[in-house]
Simulated assay, not measured.
Amino acid sequence: MNIPNMLREIDNFYEQKEEPVKGCLLALRTFILNYHEEITETWKYRMPIFCYKGKMFCYLWIHKKNQQPYVGIVEGRYIEHPLLIQEKRSRMKIMFIDPSEDLPLETIDEIFKMAMKYYK
Protein backbone atom coordinates (compact mmCIF):
# COMPACT_ATOMS: atom_id res chain seq x y z
CA MET A 1 0.00 0.00 0.00
CA ASN A 2 1.36 3.40 -0.98
CA ILE A 3 0.73 6.10 1.61
CA PRO A 4 1.16 9.66 0.29
CA ASN A 5 3.69 11.84 2.06
CA MET A 6 1.85 13.96 4.57
CA LEU A 7 3.41 17.32 5.28
CA ARG A 8 3.75 18.27 8.90
CA GLU A 9 1.75 21.37 9.84
CA ILE A 10 4.97 23.34 10.19
CA ASP A 11 6.12 22.41 6.67
CA ASN A 12 2.66 23.14 5.32
CA PHE A 13 2.89 26.67 6.81
CA TYR A 14 5.79 27.42 4.45
CA GLU A 15 4.52 25.43 1.46
CA GLN A 16 1.18 27.21 1.23
CA LYS A 17 2.77 30.66 0.86
CA GLU A 18 3.21 32.34 -2.51
CA GLU A 19 6.58 33.54 -3.79
CA PRO A 20 8.47 35.69 -2.91
CA VAL A 21 7.10 35.34 0.67
CA LYS A 22 7.64 31.56 0.67
CA GLY A 23 11.31 31.84 -0.30
CA CYS A 24 11.83 34.65 2.21
CA LEU A 25 10.34 32.62 5.07
CA LEU A 26 12.31 29.49 4.12
CA ALA A 27 15.54 31.52 3.99
CA LEU A 28 14.75 33.02 7.42
CA ARG A 29 14.02 29.52 8.76
CA THR A 30 17.40 28.26 7.54
CA PHE A 31 19.23 31.30 8.92
CA ILE A 32 17.58 30.99 12.35
CA LEU A 33 18.16 27.23 12.61
CA ASN A 34 21.82 27.68 11.66
CA TYR A 35 22.28 30.71 13.90
CA HIS A 36 23.05 28.73 17.05
CA GLU A 37 23.29 25.02 17.82
CA GLU A 38 20.78 25.37 20.67
CA ILE A 39 18.02 26.85 18.50
CA THR A 40 15.25 24.41 17.63
CA GLU A 41 12.03 24.80 15.67
CA THR A 42 8.62 23.83 16.99
CA TRP A 43 4.99 24.26 15.96
CA LYS A 44 3.09 26.21 18.60
CA TYR A 45 0.10 28.57 18.44
CA ARG A 46 -0.29 27.51 14.78
CA MET A 47 3.03 29.14 13.81
CA PRO A 48 6.72 28.23 13.56
CA ILE A 49 8.40 29.10 16.86
CA PHE A 50 12.14 28.95 17.39
CA CYS A 51 13.36 28.09 20.87
CA TYR A 52 16.75 28.88 22.35
CA LYS A 53 17.80 26.57 25.18
CA GLY A 54 14.21 25.29 25.27
CA LYS A 55 12.60 28.73 25.71
CA MET A 56 10.64 30.62 23.05
CA PHE A 57 13.06 32.96 21.28
CA CYS A 58 11.47 34.13 18.01
CA TYR A 59 8.82 33.23 15.47
CA LEU A 60 7.91 33.84 11.84
CA TRP A 61 4.58 35.24 10.74
CA ILE A 62 2.80 37.33 8.11
CA HIS A 63 1.37 40.71 9.17
CA LYS A 64 -2.41 40.78 8.77
CA LYS A 65 -2.65 44.36 7.46
CA ASN A 66 0.27 44.65 5.05
CA GLN A 67 0.82 40.93 4.29
CA GLN A 68 4.56 41.37 4.91
CA PRO A 69 6.56 38.59 6.60
CA TYR A 70 8.23 39.39 9.89
CA VAL A 71 10.42 37.96 12.61
CA GLY A 72 8.85 38.26 16.04
CA ILE A 73 11.31 38.60 18.92
CA VAL A 74 9.77 37.10 22.07
CA GLU A 75 11.72 39.24 24.57
CA GLY A 76 11.58 42.27 22.27
CA ARG A 77 10.28 44.57 25.01
CA TYR A 78 13.83 44.64 26.42
CA ILE A 79 15.49 45.54 23.14
CA GLU A 80 15.83 49.00 21.66
CA HIS A 81 16.45 48.84 17.92
CA PRO A 82 15.09 51.21 15.25
CA LEU A 83 13.73 48.33 13.12
CA LEU A 84 11.86 46.61 15.97
CA ILE A 85 8.20 47.61 16.26
CA GLN A 86 6.04 47.05 19.35
CA GLU A 87 2.56 47.75 17.95
CA LYS A 88 0.01 46.59 20.56
CA ARG A 89 2.13 43.76 21.93
CA SER A 90 3.23 43.87 25.54
CA ARG A 91 6.17 41.46 25.35
CA MET A 92 7.18 40.98 21.75
CA LYS A 93 8.49 43.24 19.04
CA ILE A 94 8.59 42.51 15.34
CA MET A 95 10.92 43.25 12.47
CA PHE A 96 9.38 43.43 9.01
CA ILE A 97 11.24 41.69 6.21
CA ASP A 98 10.86 42.81 2.59
CA PRO A 99 10.51 39.54 0.65
CA SER A 100 11.72 41.15 -2.59
CA GLU A 101 15.04 42.25 -1.04
CA ASP A 102 18.04 40.33 0.29
CA LEU A 103 17.63 39.32 3.92
CA PRO A 104 19.14 41.91 6.30
CA LEU A 105 21.28 39.23 7.97
CA GLU A 106 23.59 41.67 9.77
CA THR A 107 20.61 43.45 11.32
CA ILE A 108 18.96 40.18 12.35
CA ASP A 109 22.27 39.04 13.85
CA GLU A 110 22.53 42.31 15.80
CA ILE A 111 18.99 41.89 17.19
CA PHE A 112 19.49 38.19 17.99
CA LYS A 113 22.68 38.99 19.93
CA MET A 114 20.76 41.52 22.02
CA ALA A 115 17.88 39.07 22.56
CA MET A 116 20.12 36.16 23.61
CA LYS A 117 21.30 38.14 26.64
CA TYR A 118 17.87 37.49 28.20
CA TYR A 119 18.26 33.70 28.09
CA LYS A 120 21.14 33.15 30.53
Rank of each mutant, 00 (worst) to 15 (best):
T42S: 14
Q67L: 05
S90T: 14
T42L: 06
P48F: 08
L28Q: 00
P82S: 06
I73C: 04
K44E: 11
Y70Q: 10
T107H: 08
M47Y: 04
Q86V: 07
Y78G: 03
I49K: 01
K88H: 12
R89D: 01
V71S: 02
Y35C: 06
M114P: 01
M95G: 00
V71G: 01
S100G: 06
H81K: 03
M47F: 02
N66I: 00
H81D: 14
I39Y: 05
D109R: 11
L84H: 01
G72Q: 03
E101T: 12
N34S: 14
I32E: 04
H36P: 07
G76S: 08
M56K: 04
H36Q: 10
I97M: 10
R77N: 09
E87N: 11
P69K: 01
Y78E: 13
K55Q: 12
Y45E: 03
M92L: 13
N34T: 11
I108N: 02
R29Y: 07
M56R: 10
K65E: 10
P99Y: 05
K93H: 02
F96W: 05
Q67M: 10
K65H: 11
G72C: 00
I111L: 05
P99N: 04
E41T: 04
Q86R: 13
E75S: 07
W61L: 09
H63D: 13
I32R: 08
R89E: 05
E106Q: 13
N34F: 03
S100W: 01
L28D: 02
H81N: 11
T30Y: 09
